[in-house]
Design a protein around this nucleic acid. Structure first.
Length: 292
DNA sequence: AGACTAACCTGAAAGC
DNA sequence: TGCTTTCAGGTTAGTC
């Protein structure tokens, strides 16, 4: 599931393909939950525009256009943004991959029915695609100067998280520390995997009431979170943006997971079996011995 | 206001 | 074998 590191790695890969290029035409699938801005509006608004830069705000990618408008892309759970020059057959499910010719399996991706955006450029060069099987992702066009509540709500970037900020946000909360980390208005970019991983590294149980987590523990959580996010961005440079399996079992960061999707396996610190339970309406993994 | 739930969507995996 | 159920989770709207 794309969280901050996956979105950031995607941004770094795609920015160079988008910047300075004039969009000749955008092809889309039919209107759906995915299109916050209706597909027809999107097609007309983007035709002829040039992308000036691609930024990241929390888990949103923000493309700035030469007319001052912006395009927000959210990858949701299964969203993928890629270009013809960044290909990988691993983008496909095992079933879909098996249906490809050996050549296609080796050489890369073929757009399919789940490819909701296809950017074609005036230079005739590599196209850019956005694919999202489950359509939890979002595409939003913002008129010049326009804001959007989705952006306005976001808290500080998770890479900038401070123990003090976490502690303050948690003071008046009865909900869990895990819920606090997942709250995008508290910090933008943290998702389920990195919430679990950082709480493990900080030695704090996900189910603890946020209001009862000490300042010292908040410092540890903030430090651990920054660490895992940065480390994941580094390791994600190779493969993680190509594909992240729904269970998080694939992608470069898998080798560094301490607790996520390791239920029943021994804790790497103490050997106690990793436990899984639902916290904050999410599958949550922790070591009952190392985390207090 | 904070906290919880349902809904959105599809495919893989588990259950029968 | 094949059909059915469960599960995965980012975000928001609605409700208490």
């Amino acid at each position: 599931m794309p969280e901050l590191p996956e979105v950031e790695v995607t941004r770094r890969r795609i920015e160079g393909v988008l910047r300075g290029r004039k969009i000749a035409r955008l092809r889309t699938t039919a209107d759906s939950y995915f299109f916050v801005t209706p597909a027809a509006k999107l097609r007309s608004a983007l035709a002829g525009r040039t992308v000036s830069c691609l930024d990241r705000i929390g888990k949103y990618l923000v493309a700035s256009l030469d007319d001052g408008a912006r395009l927000l892309l959210h990858l949701g759970m299964t969203g993928q943004l890629f270009s013809e020059t960044v290909q990988s057959p691993r983008l496909l499910s095992a079933t879909a991959r098996a249906s490809l010719t050996p050549e296609a399996q080796r050489d890369g991706f073929q757009p399919d029915a789940h490819t909701h955006l296809r950017f074609e450029f005036a230079d005739g060069g590599p196209r850019v695609f956005m694919r999202d099987v489950r359509k939890f992702g979002k595409v939003i066009w913002l008129a010049p100067g326009a804001d959007h509540p989705r952006l306005a709500r976001l808290g500080p970037d998770a890479l900038e998280v401070s123990g003090e900020g976490l502690f303050r946000a948690g003071r008046k909360r009865r909900a869990t520390i895990k819920a606090l980390l997942l709250d995008q208005s508290v910090l933008a970019g943290c998702g389920n995997i990195y919430a679990d991983e950082s709480l493990f590294l900080a030695g704090v149980r996900p189910g603890r009431a946020a209001g009862r987590v000490t300042r010292r523990e908040c410092d540890r959580i903030a430090s651990a979170l920054r660490g895992v996010l940065l480390r994941s961005i580094e390791s994600g440079g190779s493969t993680i943006s190509d594909y992240v399996a729904p269970d998080g079992s694939d992608g470069a960061y898998q080798d560094e997971r301490r607790v996520y999707a390791r239920e029943g396996e021994p804790c790497l610190e103490c050997g106690t079996p990793v436990r899984k339970k639902v916290v904050a309406q999410r599958g949550t993994h922790y070591c009952p011995s190392c985390q207090r």
